[in-house]
Amino acid sequence: MRFLSSRRRSRAAKPLLLAFALFVTGALYAGFAPATQVSADAGTSALVAEGKALFQVSCSSCHGLNGEGTTQGPSLVGVGAAAVDFQVATGRMPMAHPGAQAPRKQNTFTEHEIAAMAAFVAALGPGPAIPEPPVYAPGNLDERAIARGGELFRTNCSACHNFEGGGGALPNGKYAPSLRGVEPIHIYEAMRTGPQQMPVFSAGAIPDAEAAAIIAYLEELHAQPSPGFTLGGLGPVSEGFFGWIIGVGGLCLIATWIASRGARAR
């Protein structure tokens, strides 16, 4: 301590301190920044550059040249690579036309292009990364864990997405889409990034193991055979509809036929 305090006023002290502070900040940043940043080698920066180019062509009209956001679209600083992967791979982005909600549609980008744009957006600020398969599909879940995933799904998601992920309406023309046929990775990314009206379910709220259980439950549920036509899986509304059409309607046709037959052998 005495050593430091005695040299404190030395002429070299200020530049040295500045260098030291810079070093510590850089080290800390390297330590806490997302994985894509840690291994910021030549390959990644090439990817980022490629992504930037693609982004400026396809996305900047709404999100700004550096993802800073415009009146047409929100800022993408800190949304993370997972958000880009989810939005672009499910065809939501680039948004075709303004509306209540960007709908799912055919994705026209290659996997590599998506990875490039994701890398660029991730470089703008830290956010959730694109998960690896062991995270969202560990493949070692027993049936109890999957059943528990069902319970978690009903607690956290079915209020918007309906009991079997059939989708549901939200106010002002927005809706929670059907989850049938959605890739496991996108389910994971949706939970972590919370697109639009959907809340973010962070790892603190739903740890990776539970997220994987929810995903496994949805996969299993949608693979179940159903006892007959599901009538759209909309519950009592479609049941009542078909009850009237087929039950009452069909029997009325038969009744008409019966009533129009006379007794021939009289």
């Binding site: 069902g150 319970e151 607690t155 079915s158 209020a159 918007c160 997405h161 309906n162 549901g168 009592p236």
Partner: peptide, 17 residues
Amino acid sequence: YGPYNPAQVTAGSQPDW
């Protein structure tokens, strides 16, 4: 639908017609 749990609800909850 799953077992009843007062903490849960599902979109598209309707009664019979």
